[in-house]
């Protein structure tokens, strides 16, 4: 118990610190690398919670695909990494104020709430329906049955994202010479076959 608690605090502390670095690092590439670090630690927390499947998915999808894509984008764009200090100082007081109010609210909630939630049955034993099954099995058995609507709708969201990115970026340029193999190889109507009598030649 104590070891898992210790690792939880370790992972959470690293997540918090690295998230802070994501928004405060001067070099955007460093920001993305810190983002990857926080993803990895979030995956660690999932492992502590016995959600191995989610942990692996987080690493494969977020670290393997999304963060690497971010890295490409950041490296391709020429982002000026110098943010003036004045700009930060200008928004610092109001940002700190909002943050403090928010922390105060959370502290009040934490003090006034009994965190023993065992009275709610599903929270005390969340996996009661899936005893003896692995994570992957449990997710698989509900994802395509009880949660099929969400699954399909998420697919539609991805389709909309794809349509949107194409609509907003695709420009048809005129005067671009594209390679169209069939047209380039097609000889019909483009060459004449002429019988040339010897010694006479043809008019071109």
């Amino acid at each position: 118990m104590t070891i898992s608690l210790l690792t939880f605090y370790l992972f959470s502390a690293v997540i918090l610190l690295s998230s802070l670095m994501v928004i405060s690092a001067k070099n955007p590439v460093h920001s993305v690398l810190f983002l990857i670090l926080s993803f990895l630690n979030a995956a660690g927390i999932f492992v502590i919670l016995h959600a191995e499947f989610l942990a692996m998915i987080l690493i494969i999808v977020y670290v393997g695909a999304v963060a690497v894509l971010f890295l490409f984008v950041v490296m391709m764009l020429d982002i000026k990494s110098s943010i003036s200090k004045e700009n930060i100082l200008q928004y610092m007081p109001i940002g700190l104020l909002v943050g403090l109010v928010f922390i105060a609210e959370l502290v009040i909630v934490l003090i006034n709430t009994k965190l023993d939630l065992t009275s709610i049955q599903i929270l005390s034993n969340p996996m009661s329906n899936f005893v003896g099954q692995s994570n992957t099995e449990a997710i698989g058995s509900v994802l395509y049955t009880n949660y099929i609507l969400y699954f399909q709708l998420s697919g539609i969201i991805l389709l909309v994202a794809m349509i949107g990115s194409i609509v907003l970026t695709l420009r048809e340029r005129e005067g671009v010479k594209r390679q169209i193999i069939s047209e380039q190889l097609d000889r019909r109507g483009k060459i004449d076959l002429v019988d040339v009598k010897s010694g006479e030649g043809i008019d071109v």
Binding site: L153, I157, A161, G164, L168
Partner: peptide, 8 residues
């Protein structure tokens, strides 16, 4: 789903 279409 609604918001994503509206952003575009």
């Amino acid at each position: 789903l609604q918001s994503l279409s509206l952003y575009v």
